[in-house]
């Protein structure tokens, strides 16, 4: 049982402390496990600090997302492959990602949030960021994909020609 008013203090990798409601942290498998492992009295307010390997700026974004999604169903429903393929990102989530400053910073912030969602085991946030990145590369050329994902081509011209030939049936 989760008590909505109960609060937990999170300490970030850069030394900050943030106190949040258990209503939000219940969506994080990592934090919930940490609280269970502490075997503390659920009525203790606030709970002892839980250390998270996420910096303060990224944790604030994660908390902002959790606040919007605090009433999402738990346990997080397992997605079918068909649902996974759909690009149906809720409007609030789209706006949440789009507001991250410049193009380059947006990509870095997105990567930081993805890493945080993985470390904190927040499945809904991982799904949303995965679809966001998939939408960014859908329909793009190889050169555009390299630019978006900041990848260096390490193939020789001959290798590229060979792969292009192999791919011809499904790439065009």
């Amino acid at each position: 049982r989760i008590y909505p008013l109960m609060r937990v203090t999170l300490t970030t990798s850069d030394g900050a402390s943030v106190t949040v409601s258990r209503q939000l942290t219940k969506h994080s498998g990592f934090i919930e496990k940490a609280i269970t492992d502490m075997a503390v009295d659920d009525n203790a307010v606030p709970l002892s600090a839980v250390a998270v390997d996420v910096d303060d700026a990224t944790l604030k974004l994660v908390i902002e997302w959790l606040t919007e999604h605090r009433d999402d169903a738990l346990p997080y429903p397992e997605k079918t492959d068909e649902e996974r393929r759909a690009d149906d990102i809720p409007a609030w989530d789209q706006a949440f990602v789009q507001k991250w400053d410049t193009k380059e910073d947006q990509q870095q912030t997105l990567y930081a949030v993805i890493t945080a969602a993985d470390k904190l085991d927040i499945k809904g946030l991982l799904d949303m960021t995965c679809k966001t990145l998939a939408n960014k590369i859908n329909g793009k050329t190889v050169e555009e994909m390299r630019e978006i994902l900041q990848l260096e081509c390490d193939f020789t011209e001959e290798e590229l020609a060979e792969i292009r030939k192999e791919n011809a049936w499904c790439e065009n």
Binding site: I137, V142, M145, L151, E152, C153, D154, F155, N167
Partner: peptide, 11 residues
Amino acid sequence: KERARLRRTCR
């Protein structure tokens, strides 16, 4: 199609 194109981005 995207898988095929991603194949060509890098090793």
